[in-house]
Amino acid sequence: MDVQRISAFSHDGTGGNPAGVVIGESLPDPATMQRVAAEVGYSETAFVAIAPGATVAEVRYYSPDAEVDFCGHATIATAVALAEARGPASFEFRTKAGSVHVEAAVEGGSATATLTSVTPKVTPAPVSLLDALLPLLGWSPEDLDPVLAPALSYAGAWHLVLGTVSLSTLESLAYDFAGVRSLMLEHGLTTLQLVHRTAPTEFRSRNPFPVGGVVEDPATGAAAAALGAYLRHYGLVRPPADVTIVQGVEMGAPSLIRVAVPAGDAGIRVTGAAHRLG
């Protein structure tokens, strides 16, 4: 099986989050997709079924441990792989979370892609979830940013958005992997979107992903879309707004994610550059 390896949301040709991409005219069976994703070992591998010349694709995403409904960085990587093979184009990715519109282009050796999420949803985080989670993160209530209300946000997958008032708290993150994984599975969460607001429309982020068997993602497009939806829902940006997220710094894989937040309840647009590995 031909597995392409592409790092999405890279910055100046480095960093980003690697994804596996497998493109064919039909999807492998679920057991095969799970096995291949575990062998590749990236936080996600995308499996794509698309006919020659078509612009509509069936896409499934697998982490090393389980299938996930939607993955942003693997979507960006897949769109770039298709654009490299077919030229600049727009695609409809039919995912388990719904249809996602994607645009990709490759110019002068530089590849970028933009996805538009499904319709987002935001709801306050249960107090019981926070009471259980904070000790597992090594955080206290005083570490939380009072301006950023803890919330569950969805733009293809559910994420807990949790803001800290101190960048050093984010930088020194060390968490109970098994405990956080169990709690996230109980609440149906894909990642934790842990953020520190460095400017009105700029954030540093870290994304624990223990439910996928991964300690941390260096760039998370689905969580970035969820953050954009969260900021709009709580009136923390004035749409249309452009938001920048820097992630992966502590992992030595600095990543740059650009988020466009439209007015109303429209899907969030997430843009990133990508480069091939190996």
Rank of each mutant, 00 (worst) to 15 (best):
T14Q: 14
L236H: 08
Y154D: 01
K96M: 14
F209Y: 12
E39W: 02
R35M: 14
T164F: 05
D69L: 12
A178Y: 02
Y154C: 03
L277D: 04
A174I: 04
A219E: 10
L185A: 06
V261N: 02
R258K: 09
W139M: 09
L160V: 04
L189N: 03
L167R: 15
A46K: 12
V102I: 13
G20W: 05
A229Q: 04
S182D: 13
G213R: 00
G188V: 05
H275K: 08
A155D: 01
S168Q: 14
T169W: 03
A151T: 03
A51W: 10
G278A: 14
A229G: 15
V165G: 11
L231A: 09
F91K: 13
P124A: 08
Q4C: 06
L27R: 12
Q247T: 00
F203V: 00
P150L: 07
S140W: 11
S166N: 10
V127R: 13
W139P: 00
G87K: 08
R35Q: 15
T123Y: 08
V100N: 04
V40R: 03
D65M: 14
V106K: 12
G16S: 07
M33F: 01
A260K: 11
I6Y: 06
I23T: 13
F9E: 11
P120D: 05
E103L: 09
H73D: 13
V118M: 06
A253P: 00
V118R: 06
G20N: 08
V243D: 03
D242K: 03
F70S: 13
A77R: 14
S182V: 05
N17V: 05
P52W: 13
E250V: 02
G221R: 06
A38E: 06
A74R: 07
S117E: 00
V165Q: 10
G109R: 14
T14A: 15
E84W: 09
R206T: 00
H187W: 10
V259K: 02
